[in-house]
């Protein structure tokens, strides 16, 4: 049993985002948490501006949002929790994010094999019919969780 699937949204926010320093630094907020389908918000933050003249967020912050959201989508698809790592992430920036708008990423893990998981993601800033980015990610799955298992109690 994957212990993530028993978590509430608030618990999942703590375990999947707040403990990850870079996700925490970006202020990521878990909005929807369902197996294979994850929604995460990146609130507008002046520290993340890429173009000081327009106030538009830097693409790198969007890349981090997309990578995080895709990774969580993979983890919630697994029957037993295993460590995963991004091997490939491709992002198309369809347009710039609007200043002062929260960017929302929706990621769906649509295929998992024993070793590899495939994810598709989109991002918008308020209107889901007006996307600002689309992405495709590929993740490799490891046999175990890693040396410092945050879900140690669920190992049995």
């Amino acid at each position: 049993m994957n212990p993530l699937l028993k978590l509430t949204l608030v618990q999942a926010q703590q375990v999947m985002i707040d403990v990850v320093p870079q996700s925490h630094a970006l202020g990521l907020k878990l909005v929807e948490f369902a197996p294979s389908r994850i929604v995460v918000d990146l609130p507008y933050d002046a520290r993340l501006i890429g173009d000081p003249e327009t106030g538009v967020l830097h693409g790198g912050a969007i890349t981090t949002l997309v990578d995080s959201t895709c990774g969580i989508a993979v983890l919630t698809t697994l029957r037993t929790l295993r460590r995963c790592a991004t091997i490939d992430l491709r992002i198309d920036y369809l347009r710039a994010a609007r200043p002062n708008q929260t960017v929302r990423c929706i990621a769906e893990c649509h295929r998992v094999t024993h070793e590899i998981a495939f994810v598709r993601a989109t991002a918008h800033d308020g209107d889901s019919s007006d996307l600002l980015a689309t992405a495709a990610g590929t993740f490799v799955l490891f046999e175990t969780l890693g040396t410092h298992d945050i879900f140690g109690e669920a190992k049995t």
Binding site: V20, P21, Q22, G59, G60, T64, D67, T86, I91, L145
Partner: peptide
């Protein structure tokens, strides 16, 4: 800096920060 970490279990950098470094 510690704030760049994306996987606290294996203490690896966040993939997004590597993408951002390369884009910049």
């Amino acid at each position: 800096t510690d704030a760049l970490i994306g996987n606290p279990q294996v203490r690896a950098l966040h993939g997004g920060t590597l993408g951002a470094l390369m884009e910049l």
